[in-house]
Design a protein around this nucleic acid. Structure first.
Lengths: 336, 336
DNA sequence: TTGTTCCATGTTAGCGCTAACATGACGTGA
DNA sequence: TCACGTCATGTTAGCGCTAACATGGAACAA
């Protein structure tokens, strides 16, 4: 490639300027330009000024792809979430990138859409970009995915759960115990006919199991379980399918709020406190929205952004505790 | 580097296996392995099978960093949003990655947090990874940012607005007209004292301007404008700061719902239709939540995911219309 | 037979950068 | 004076892969 492609002062022509074009213009070797970019302290002030001027003249933007290949450091992390839209996982992504971006790491984002095949594909796609760590919601759904991650020899952080045998690091909470806590509370409130609504993804299922086990242990009948699509709108109609039920644990706040909307339409929602509700509703996630509606939503509060920030930390430091339980909190408001 | 580092059957040791290690094991040259990965049709079936076996044996994961450098194609797009948490932009990111991921593109995500300095930094960081396109919400806040993008010589898609002189492509809607539409509706409804609540980011400001101009043109007094933090909770208290106001346009649904919550606490929210509301409230975004609360939220409906998918399309095809107005729709429910 | 075409595979060079190791100029203390 | 350290800069090789151009054989028509 001819270096004459780029004429100074005329704006960019064909190709982006390279290190050695900057070097030539500044009258130094390319390694000196590289040092100005990465370790400016090692370069004499006058030389540095000359190089910086040349970079400005040419509009030089370092090529991290080449840099990554040469140095075997990509300064990137792969992030895999089921979905980012309309979900609390966005908080986790926000949290982790707030921590990683200032350190020069880029976030490569992939979505599995709760699909095991797509998850494996995305995992492979992420790994082929040689991220320095992978942060994912949950655990790989397949053996293949697990093997892929295990062989990658980079920090792997599983989040939003506490898997029994994690691949590497974990930042999450105990979904089973969350289910127990909700059931305990509803039993103490004198509720008799419990139900669970939500998806059947691994974490939702663990919430369900804790909820069911505790209800049974308390001598109640087995709670009903209504498996809903991702679309919240399904939960609006859920009430009609749960006759006789006097307490509902929704797998997340969106489902809970949708369900409450159905209750309102059916005329079984009061503006008073939990004790006045014909049907108690508890959510999970503690969306801000839950405090804005009436009645205010009781929920299991989980700090999605703290999970993200903790995951980022686990990514950076290899030593220390690799299993962080961020816990949860039952926040009681007016809905149940 | 010694290729003896990787012993077959013993799991991965030091370094990840390379193309040429696979080639050696399969008894072919490395270009043949490369072809098996990228254009399998060019390789004879028996050879292909042998190579595929070798890849499996070694747990080979292609190194796209090296591939990108050699081919000058990174198969990635940079995406810059103000924030991803708790926001409609998540829909846009979802929409565009749903379109791009199946095509083998990765999404590199960056957040500006509504901060011009951080935006420029993130833009430079994105460009140094040599994405094949940049999709951003809005337009660069600074001249530097604009220049950076202009010189990058890749497709640039600005979204969520219709800038007068875009850098390249646009997928959005007219925020000014949205403001007009809301004001027109409120005037027709007989409201007299309008107010606008929300942020002062460029798009929010354009909504405000349209809203104000239309109110003035209709002979109303200049509407009040309350600039709020990103935190929705601010909008709960907003009512107290707007005495006499009988109609509010909130820059987004989250603010609208927060404001309605404040109205409820103040006892100025009815369960009836819009005409019964002492204070009309219109949002923007059409969150699903708006239909679940009571009264249901009137809003400017904007399809965040369609914006994302359209932006992705603009990224892929260089010809054709480069300015797509996806419009908006005033959806009237019970809040105003 | 002798091109000619096609197919499967190989060789060579280099993408833009950085790690690791020179190099040479200049003090500095004994 | 000179061996030695220090500082600023340079040289060399190579990261793992792919584009572009060979190569050599089989198939086939004239």
């Amino acid at each position: 490639m001819s270096s004459e492609l780029t004429e100074p002062g005329t704006g960019p022509t064909g190709a982006a300027p390279t290190l050695s074009e900057v070097a030539k213009r500044a009258g130094v070797s390319s390694i000196t330009v590289s040092r100005v970019v990465r370790m400016p302290d090692l370069v004499a002030p006058e030389t540095r000024a000359r190089v910086e001027q040349a970079m400005r003249d040419l509009g030089y933007v370092p090529n991290l792809v080449a840099g990554a290949l040469a140095s075997a450091r990509t300064n990137s992390v792969g992030v895999l979430v089921p979905t980012i839209a309309n979900s609390i996982f966005a908080d986790t992504v926000q949290g982790l990138s707030d921590k990683l971006e200032p350190l020069g790491f880029s976030v490569i984002l992939a979505q599995s859409r709760y699909d095991a095949v797509r998850e494996d594909r995305m995992l492979a796609a992420l790994l082929s970009r040689r991220p320095e760590a992978i942060i994912m919601v949950g655990s790989p759904a397949t053996e293949d995915g697990t093997r892929l991650l295990r062989n990658a020899r980079i920090p792997i952080v599983e989040t939003w759960d506490l898997p029994a045998s994690p691949i590497d690091a974990v930042a999450g909470f105990d979904n089973y115990k969350a289910g127990i806590a909700v059931a305990k509370h509803l039993v103490a409130q004198g509720r008799k006919q419990l139900a669970f609504i939500g998806g059947d993804d691994p974490r939702g299922t663990r919430r369900w199991l804790g909820f069911r086990d505790e209800a049974l242990a308390s001598g109640l009948a087995e709670p009903r379980r209504l498996i809903l699509d991702r679309k919240d709108s399904g939960s609006v109609a859920a009430h009609a399918r749960l006759p006789g039920v006097d307490a509902v644990f929704a797998a997340n706040d969106a489902h809970a709020i949708g369900f409450m909307s159905g209750l309102r339409k059916a005329g079984v929602l009061r503006d008073g406190p939990a004790s006045a509700q014909p049907v108690a509703v508890i959510g999970l996630g503690d969306l801000e929205m839950g405090q804005l509606i009436s009645p205010t939503l009781s929920t299991i509060s989980v700090h999605g952004d703290a999970i993200g920030r903790t995951a980022a930390t686990l990514t950076l430091e290899r030593g220390g505790e690799r299993r962080i339980d961020l816990g949860f909190e039952l926040v009681l408001r007016d809905s149940g």
